[in-house]
Write a protein that binds this DNA or RNA. Structure first.
Lengths: 157, 157
DNA sequence: TATTGTTATACTCTATAACTATA
DNA sequence: TATAGTTATAGAGTATAACAATA
């Protein structure tokens, strides 16, 4: 395994570790990643219709019905009438829902501090510049609808 | 959004782009990520029992039954008798399965070249060193079973 | 006519429990 | 007794199709 392959495998390991830890931590709260995504959108956009949530998250409105049902059942959100459109439903965070998203936002700030706080500024800027190159390359590869796309069809160890 | 938050959000964007592109590309081949994971293990370890696949992938043996059923149906693998243990079944790649994993390995090498090939060596080493720091921090945070764990319970934009 | 939300149905991945055959 | 693999059942996320109420 050369240097480049080693870096790629560390990127994949990072993604797996973060994903798995996120799932465990959410399960402790009785949440899943999809349901948490709904809470996150509500925390950022405020009360939103089902259709708005579907557009923000990139799933169908039928999916939103199920996710919101589960979140209502667990007390994280509530449904309320839309003030002007009687077809629409607004999903609003409950106090419990707001408390959870506040906690998650704080944990995210803590994590970022732990990740980068110990790097000296020169090292961080070097890392950040390399990350820019990698992200730009991936953006270009995946937005290209030609045969060159789907170049990331590679799997982890 | 400060510098550190920007870097974190780019890491999350990178994970989303790679995951989504990987799913699209696999769907073109009639594969899913879970089924591809089975193919990948077989390509690296050679023929393996269901129990071996379950251990390598980290799911239950019941899951493996379903994944192998699907892969057999699509012609990527075949089941064969274990030479000495009559309880066990060996899963082997077919020619089609080998062709697919070979293609994926080549695509992975191409992607790595596209990601890092344009960086000059100094820039790559700086990026790689920063990646080490981030990965070590995440490893430490997620392996710690104390209250400090689950620090990555943060969600993307 | 178009949009909003719901219900019905289906597929994939995951898990636990119960079972058969074999070690 | 323990292990290998299967089947049955259930829950979660996703999708499409059909529907009622409203715009």
């Amino acid at each position: 395994m050369n240097e480049h392959e080693g870096a790629w495998s560390r990127i994949l390991e990072l993604a797996v570790l973060v994903n798995d830890d996120m799932d465990r931590s959410l399960a402790d709260l009785g949440l899943t990643r999809s349901r948490t995504h709904v809470l996150w959108v509500l925390a950022q956009q405020g009360s939103t219709t089902h259709a708005g949530l579907a557009a923000a998250i990139g799933v169908t409105a039928q999916n939103i019905t199920g996710l919101v049902d589960a979140l209502v059942g667990a007390g994280f959100v509530a449904r309320s009438r839309h003030p002007t459109d009687r077809r629409a439903t607004l999903v609003v965070l409950t106090e419990r829902g707001s408390a959870v998203t506040d906690t998650m936002a704080r944990q995210q700030r803590d994590l970022i501090q732990q990740l980068f706080g110990s790097m000296d500024p020169r090292q961080f800027r070097a890392f950040s510049a390399g990350l820019d190159v990698v992200l730009d390359t991936v953006r270009r590869l995946t937005s290209d609808a030609s045969a060159a796309a789907h170049a990331t069809a590679s799997v982890g160890t």
